[in-house]
């Protein structure tokens, strides 16, 4: 897939890598991620999405791919077809997610399967100049930096137990969609649950800053983020990461092109 990793306002870097348990079981990578920059009347807007297909769902790799591409298409369309200010509210975000859920249901009809067979999480960031809409359904994490702190926006939504979570294909997903609004976000990251144990601090329920900082420092300094994709994939597939998780893992990073990520 061709990735346009540097736009006018953002440098983007993202990759999804198959977990060792999926390799062993002959399963595909069920994670997916996608990011783009949309030119709007109100300036350039980052639209990013990350999705983790359920391990128990037969075609969730199809679900996670469609969820991300549909979200980016829907949000881009709405951002360019009306004033950007109209998009920064909870009902609008719900509308985007409903459209994604609708696309997944339609796809399940085409594939003659159930929506549950496409089950996946969906984490998204839509970031403009001075405003950000961050939304999460299911586990994984969204991390954003406005000033100095790498803030974990939501603690991963899951049931009591580690192997239970919410999916956008659930009939009652609307009750579990978490939406947050922030101001001037300089950098943000989306990650799938495969990285939760290494990137989040479970006792304090926040982001482990020392995990994110080196990535952003490097991304800020690089002229061409595309050159880092191989390194990111190598990291995600490294022995040290694989010793902590055997699940698929996704990391998506976005930093403003302004020096210092717009510090």
């Amino acid at each position: 897939m061709g990735q346009n990793l540097s736009g006018t306002d953002w440098k983007l870097l993202y990759a999804s890598v198959t977990g060792t348990s999926h390799v062993k079981a002959g399963l595909p990578c069920q994670d997916f991620s996608l990011a783009t920059e949309v030119e709007t009347a109100g300036g350039s807007v980052l639209v990013a999405a990350c999705s983790d297909g359920a391990g128990s769902a037969a075609m969730s790799q199809e679900g996670s791919r469609l969820a991300c591409s549909q979200f980016v298409a829907t949000a881009s369309r709405m951002l360019t077809s009306r004033s950007v200010g109209d998009c920064i509210n909870y009902p609008k975000v719900m509308e985007w997610y409903r459209e994604v859920a609708g696309a997944l249901h339609a796809r399940s009809v085409e594939l003659r399967c159930t929506p549950r067979d496409l089950a996946c999480t969906l984490l998204t960031a839509v970031v403009g100049a001075g405003w950000a809409v961050l939304a999460q359904l299911g586990d994984g994490g969204i991390v954003a930096r406005e000033t100095d702190t790498y803030e974990l926006i939501f603690w991963p939504e899951s049931g009591e137990y580690l192997n239970t979570t919410r999916f956008i294909t659930d009939a009652d997903f609307e009750a579990h969609l978490q939406v947050a609004f922030r101001g001037y976000v300089r950098e943000c990251a989306l990650l799938s649950d495969g990285l939760q144990l290494v990137a989040l601090n479970f006792a304090e329920r926040n982001a482990h800053a020392a995990f994110f900082r080196p990535f952003f420092t490097t991304l800020r300094a690089t002229a061409d983020p595309a050159e880092l994709v191989i390194d990111l994939r190598a990291f995600l597939d490294s022995a040290s990461v694989n010793s902590r998780t055997d699940d698929d893992k996704t990391l998506l990073l976005a930093t403003r092109t302004v020096p210092g990520g717009g510090v």
Binding site: A199, L200, F211, T218
Partner: peptide
């Protein structure tokens, strides 16, 4: 390329 990445000690 990414410097020293520290893992959360969970």
């Amino acid at each position: 390329p990414f410097g020293q990445i520290s893992f959360a000690d969970n």
